[in-house]
Each structure stands twice: as structure tokens, then as C-alpha cells.
Amino acid sequence: MHPFDYVAATSVDQVNSVLAEHGKRARPLVGGTDLLVQLRGGRFELDVVVDIKGVPEANVLDLNGSLKMGSAVSCATVYENEAISAAFPGLMDAAELIGGIQIQSRASMAGNLCNSTPSGDTIGPMIVHGGQVNIVSSSGSRTVAVEDFCTGPGRNVLEDGEWVLDITFPAPSSSFGAAYERFIPRNEMDIAVAGAASSLTLDGSGNISEAKVSLAAVGPTPVTVGAIGDLLEGKTPTAENFEAAGKIAYDAVSPISDMRGTIEQRRHLSGVLTRRTLAKAAERAKAG
């Protein structure tokens, strides 16, 4: 492994300046559960890792209707917060099932996003919860929707010197529900063969006013299926309508066959998990 230096940053400016100085040769560190493993495996070389867990702004976890989640906040910190778990059930589903307790204790959702694997469990839930990524650098800041963040397997919109400071989610209405499920051969501690995150909002008469579905591990990036929203809007949250949504998901995905699953299995799972997570999101929406 190429020897790298370690900087325990305590301010946003300090992170910006290290990343500005080293460009591609530096990266932020939170949980280390991807970064350190990749460095050890020789996936790439760095001269510096910048630990951002000591940066106060990266540790913000502020629920005030909307939710602001700093990029260093661990998954365990999120799901141990009952108010956040109740208001953002899709995020809770994913935070509770990613890795094991050891991984959840360290890994952050922003880290999962920046790692940008198509199977990242928290990315779809952040998409259907409408997450907006606050990207900062020494030259300023910009906001990108979680939905637009990943550009390919392991690739994303971050330019040299840029990093994620926090992710903000709009306040869910009382008739909003979301859910995430994945298929793995074990019960825990595995990488999704396929996953689905769904959210929907019901109007005063119980019809669907908005629906979003984003699928994991079935394309080069998370696959957000806009056609499902178009299909479901104005309709009732029934098993038949969710079945039809599942059929759209089946056709919308572009999976590969690999050691975890085949193309056909992943298409099938996309349909099933879409149907199930829409139904669970609807139950949660009705429960308020």
C-alpha cells in the first residue's frame, strides 16, 4: 500500500485547503469502511486522507421539519434517533440494514453516496426522500440532488477539491411514507442483489399525489423510474396499481449478471421489491 498521511481536520476551511492542495491525491475519511479497504486493496493511491469527523458542520443532525444530516454522521446515530426514524422511514430502513453493527457505527450515508456503488443501500432512500447534497470546496459551494449525484459505478459529480458537507431532506407531509427493501441470500451483512426504495404521498381523499421509486444494483447508477410516478399519480394505493408499477420497474432496469445474481433474477426482484416497498410506503403514509 502506498503510504499516505493523515490529517484530523477540525474545520471546513482546513478540509478545503488540504483537498485543494492535493487534488486527486487526497480524500475525506469518515467510516473508512470503503476508503481504507480500497486503499489497502490497491484500487487507487492517495497521499493524504482527511478525517472530517472532527468538523462540527459535518456532524450536524438537525431535525426541524426538514432534516439536515452532516456527512460524518454515522448510520447508527441516525437510526437511534427516534424522531428522525419516524419522520424519514426510508432512511431508517437502509441505515439499519447496511453492513453489521460495526459498520453502522462508523459508516455515514454521505460516505455511501460518495462511494457511488450501484448497490449502495442508502442512496435510493435518500433519492426518494428528496435529498439535496451540499457540495463544498475552497472555491464555494453548490447543491446537487442525490438523484443526480452518481454518474457510474464508483463515479460521481464531485470534482477535484470538492467534498460533501451535508445532505438536506425536505419536511415530509403527514401523509408521506417511504420504505427500502433489498434482496440478499443471507439475512444480514450482505450486498444487495437488488434493492428498491419507494416513497409516496397521499392526498386528502387517499389518492396518490406523488410517488418515487429508485432501484439499487440493477444499473450503473441507482435507477430512478420516473414512469412509475407518472403511472401512480392520481391513482389509489391498491395492490393492482403497485403490481403495474412493478412491471414498469421490471422493464426499466438494466442489470448485469455477476456472482450475486443474473439479469433475469434482478429484473424479477426489481418488480417484486417495487411492489412491496410501495405497499409498505402506503401503509406508513396512511399511519401518518
Binding site: 473508512g32 469502511t33 481504507l36 479497504v37 489497502r40 486522507v49 453492513g99 460495526q102
Partner: peptide, 23 residues
Amino acid sequence: NDGNCGACTVVLDGRIVDSCCVL
């Protein structure tokens, strides 16, 4: 040595972690 097996589990500030994934 890659965060899967938990053989290296220690408690860091009250939380269990894989020590192979910590510097």
C-alpha cells in the same frame, strides 16, 4: 482485513467497530 468478519472488533468511544477499518 476488509470489514466483513468482525474478528478485529473493538469498542471505540462506546461503539463496536472493525479495527481494520479504523486508522
